[in-house]
């Protein structure tokens, strides 16, 4: 078996009396999709924030490609190739698709006289190329994101993470607010991410989605790892049992 791309060991995060994460070990291997599931308040978003640099754990170590790393900010995580799609917080509605894709990483001119200025043509070209290759189905990269449908908006956020993420893309409930058809589009998009060789962490409450696209399922319960399953060998009732903590006997399953 190959070495993990990203490993968390003994991750601890307490918010006052709340043990959001209580010594969690987690591995992500190259090119796989791992589903991160658990009940409300199980600690999924906290774990995502630890991996994406938005939160520093109280204790524990993070290994990236075998080397220990400290992620003090989302920029640092991004610097080593980890991109995150945060639930609901992904896009700026009044900026257009291209501006959203390049926000914080704008391309500027190359000469001394224009290096302070945006190179909008280059960014539009690049953005159109990304959007086309991901088959997101947007007419133009110059539409304000606020005027897109929920699914298209989420696709823009996912597309941004994919276009910049070199190693890992983390998504916290990317389909939570979406309808059936829109979820379909985002799921297909995630599958194409995997085809590009990136590793994906997918947080979702929707078990059918998780079963459809993941390779492994990691269950969190009350801040602890409740178990890891290989998706094609697992049964929904097993996962539900791990999530709720109610033992399900093999006979029932």
């Amino acid at each position: 078996m190959t070495a993990p791309l990203l490993s968390l060991r003994g991750i601890l995060k307490h918010y006052g009396p709340v043990h959001a994460l209580d010594g969690v070990d987690f591995d992500l291997f190259p090119g796989e999709i791992v589903g991160l599931v658990g009940d409300n308040g199980a600690g999924k978003s906290t774990l995502v924030k630890v991996m994406s640099g938005a939160t520093e754990p109280d204790a524990g170590t993070i290994l990236f490609e075998g080397k220990p790393v400290v992620l003090r900010s989302p920029q640092e995580a991004r610097g080593i190739g980890i991109e995150t799609v945060y639930q609901d917080l992904a896009v700026v509605p009044w900026l257009d698709v291209e501006a959203n894709l390049f926000l914080g990483r704008e391309i500027t001119g190359a000469s001394w006289w224009n290096r302070w200025f945006l190179n909008k043509n280059a960014m539009r070209r690049e953005a159109a190329r990304h959007i086309a290759s991901l088959q997101v189905g947007l007419k133009s990269v110059r539409q304000p994101v606020g005027l897109l449908s929920g699914g298209q908006r989420q696709s823009v956020a996912v597309a941004r993470a994919i276009s910049w993420g070199r190693k890992v893309v983390i998504m916290d409930e990317p389909t939570a607010a979406l309808g059936v058809r829109e979820s379909r589009g985002v799921l297909d998009l995630i599958k194409r991410v995997k085809e590009r060789g990136l590793a994906v962490v997918l947080v979702s409450h929707n078990l059918p989605h998780v079963f459809e696209i993941t390779d492994r399922i990691f269950v969190l319960r009350q801040g602890r790892a409740a178990g890891t399953l290989v998706t094609h060998e697992a049964h929904v009732s097993e996962v539900v049992g791990l999530i709720t903590g109610v033992r399900v006997s093999a006979a029932v399953a």
Binding site: P74, R78, L95, G104, T108, L118
Partner: peptide, 24 residues
Amino acid sequence: NHTPFGRHVYALGGNEAATRLLGL
């Protein structure tokens, strides 16, 4: 309209949380 700064201003007013998480 023609510098990264300008875009960041629109982003800040449009979605402050996203702007922070994007590292600005």
